[in-house]
Design a protein around this nucleic acid. Structure first.
Lengths: 88, 88
DNA sequence: GGAAAATCCTCGCAAACGTGAGGATTGTTC
DNA sequence: GAACAATCCTCACGTTTGCGAGGATTTTCC
């Protein structure tokens, strides 16, 4: 199910819910994800000044996917050959 | 249209695409959103250590919505009265 | 209701943040 | 290809980051 994020802080609730549903403690989740317990706690309490890369790491670690909802024109722009950068 | 974010840095491409489609320069977009030009540039170049709250501000300013894809159990958890916090 | 579990808070640390400004580099237009 | 537009990079600044650790507080369980 997809949840819309209305404000930056509310992502913390989803992070906590995801962890609780898996019945994992904060310190254990933090350890396996590779961030500090303090940091995970800060996210869950709605910290907005956390680094995006580390937040994304936490989301991934908890199995939460991030999607962006954009106008069709943006998707079309991204699919133009000139704007692609397929490197494999 | 919904775009899945596979890594933290790729959000920058979507930000740039959203801005370009609206035919706005970096400095103008940054000004109207309320962040520095340097900062917006950093996001667009894939900066991962940017603050989530400010990144979210940029996304909002460009009309990009953030969604999280979670298991049904997480959504159910969030809807339990004990875990809700409706304050209006 | 008390014990245990879990979470939160404060500290000090080294590193890096976002900002404004100025100049360098790259991209676009004619 | 030159001129202009747009973006990138470096600098210095004051502030704040994430971390590990230890103790305080809150929550959960029996």
């Amino acid at each position: 199910m997809k949840i819309t994020i209305d404000n930056a802080a509310s992502i913390g609730k989803v992070v906590r819910a995801s962890r609780k549903v898996q019945k994992i403690r904060q310190d254990d989740a933090a350890g396996s994800i590779g961030v500090s317990e303090n940091f995970l706690g800060k996210i869950e309490r709605g910290g907005e000044s956390v680094q995006w890369g580390k937040l994304f790491q936490v989301l991934e670690g908890l199995g939460v996917r991030v999607l962006l909802d954009v106008p069709e024109s943006v998707a079309a722009y991204l699919n133009e050959p000139a704007n692609r950068q397929d490197k494999r």
